[in-house]
Structure formats: C-alpha cells, structure tokens
C-alpha cells in the first residue's frame, strides 16, 4: 500500500504536468502504451526514442526520479520470468529483453501518470470520457473505504494475535482456519453494515438513484496543445527507428 500512498502524495505537486487536465494525460499515456506495445519484439533498441520521451516527461514532472524507477520495479518479476523462459528455450535474448523493457516502460508511464494526477481527478476524467457513472461511483467508494476496511482487518488480526499469544498451539491448523474464516465473515458483515450506513447518508442528502457528476474543469487550449504535442512526439519517436537505418 506504501507505493500508492507515495503516488498520492506526489500527485499533490504543482509541475506543468500536474496542472494539465486528467483526460489529456490519460489519453497521451494510452498513446504511449500503444507505441510501446507495437514496437517489434525483435528489435528492443527501437524502444530507445520512446524511453527518451518518458525521461523527458519524468523531468517535467519534477518527481523524485530514482524513487519512481525503483518503486515501479515491483512489476518486473512477471516479464522477467517469461523473458527468462523464452531465452532458455529459444536462446532468443532480444525477445526476452523486449518483454522486460516494454513491461517496465509501460508500468513507469502509468506510475508517472498517477504521480502527477490525483486519483479523484482521474476518476472524474474517466466519467467525462464516457465510463458509466455506476462504475465510477463504485471505484470512488472502493478508494474511499479501502484504507478503512484494511485497517479494520489489520486491527482484528492484531487483536487475535494478542489474545492467543502462545496459548494456542501453532500446529492447530483447523482452529486457525476456523478463526481466519470467522474473522473474514465478521469483516464481511461489517462491510455490509458500513455500506448500509453510507447508503442511508446518500439518501438523506437527496440521492434518488441517479448519479450526477461534477464537471471536471474545462479542457483548455493548453490541454489541447499538450495532447497534440505528445501525440506527435510519440508518433515520431515510434517512427524514427524505422526511417533511420
């Protein structure tokens, strides 16, 4: 959870990228991901210009670069695993390298997006881009109650550990299972009660079953410029290796 908290903290910054509309940033990240995904796996070096673009964006964001690079490395095991397999099997090292590089670069782009965009703004942007209101609202309440419910679960676990400090034989697997499933059931019930309370609060404040969203701030000329520029830069970075040799 630490990773997401850190991103959340970064998102409150004030760089050029922070000030852009969430929709502009989201769309250019999607373009970036498509560019990464379409580089031929046989030529991992073709990723270099795109990686340079990412570096530029990272510099513009004024986020602690090293920390972002390190934190995002948690995504590496998956592509490294499959990269290794293909290397061992076919001796195809460039495919393996491409797999790892593309995954890492893609994850970095998403991490950067979240580091310069507060999640509530991004969700509002999603709504404005046409994602159904119900889904956005579920996302919002999930985010809102995530920490609360997780904290509750951790407190319950701590309480359970305190109660049987040494009293319960560690081997007694059956009763440990019993305890864990009981705790989850209680947590399930608590979540139900929490949802009912929230629903009451919504009704009491005039909710009648249809969600209305606050419009996100207008899409300004600056956002259009950014979108056009980034699309152009991504296309060029993607094309360059094709033309150069």
């Amino acid at each position: 959870m630490g990773h997401s908290l850190r991103l959340d903290e970064w998102a409150r910054g004030a760089s050029v990228l922070h000030r852009l509309d969430a929709r502009a940033k989201l769309i250019s990240v999607l373009l970036f991901l498509i560019a990464v995904s379409t580089t031929p796996p046989a030529a991992p070096l073709a990723l270099l210009p795109i990686a340079a673009l990412f570096a530029l964006a990272l510099a513009l964001s004024a986020l602690p670069a090293m920390e972002l690079l390190l934190r995002t490395a948690i995504v590496l095991p998956f592509p490294v695993f499959f990269g290794l397999i293909s290397w061992l099997q076919n001796g195809n090292s460039s495919f393996a390298a491409a797999l790892v590089a593309r995954s890492y670069l893609s994850a970095l782009a998403v991490a950067l997006l979240m580091g310069v965009t507060p999640l509530p703004e991004l969700l509002r942007g999603l709504r404005a881009l046409g994602v159904p209101a119900v889904l956005v609202m579920v996302l919002q309440s999930l985010v809102r109650y995530l920490q609360l419910v997780v904290d509750h679960a951790l407190r319950m676990r701590r309480a359970a550990l305190c109660r049987d400090a040494g009293a319960l034989p560690r081997r007694n697997r059956q009763s440990l299972w019993h305890r864990a499933s009981g705790a989850l059931a209680v947590l399930f019930g608590r979540s139900y009660a929490r949802a009912e309370g929230v629903h009451h609060a919504m009704l009491a404040r005039g909710f009648r079953g249809d969600f209305v969203s606050l419009h996100p701030a207008a899409f300004t000329a600056r956002d259009w410029r950014f979108l056009a520029l980034s699309a152009l830069a991504i296309a060029l970075a993607r094309l360059a290796p094709q033309v150069a040799p």
């Binding site: 509530p120 309440s141 929230v198 919504m202 404040r205 606050l214």
Partner: peptide
C-alpha cells in the same frame, strides 16, 4: 448528521462531498 462521519463523507474529497447534496437535488454543478 450521522454518528459515524465516515459513513457520511463518502466522496473522494471534502468539497465534492459537500457538493453532493445540492448536485443530487437538481442544482447545476
């Protein structure tokens, strides 16, 4: 005003939460 403020503050930010009531009783954003 509910006993548990966490039930009541269900929107992502305080401002959005305060605006929830007016917004859902027909006022424009």
């Amino acid at each position: 005003v509910f006993q548990d403020s966490d039930d009541q503050l269900f929107m992502p930010t305080v401002l959005e939460d305060v605006a929830f009531g007016p917004l859902h009783t027909g006022m424009d954003p």
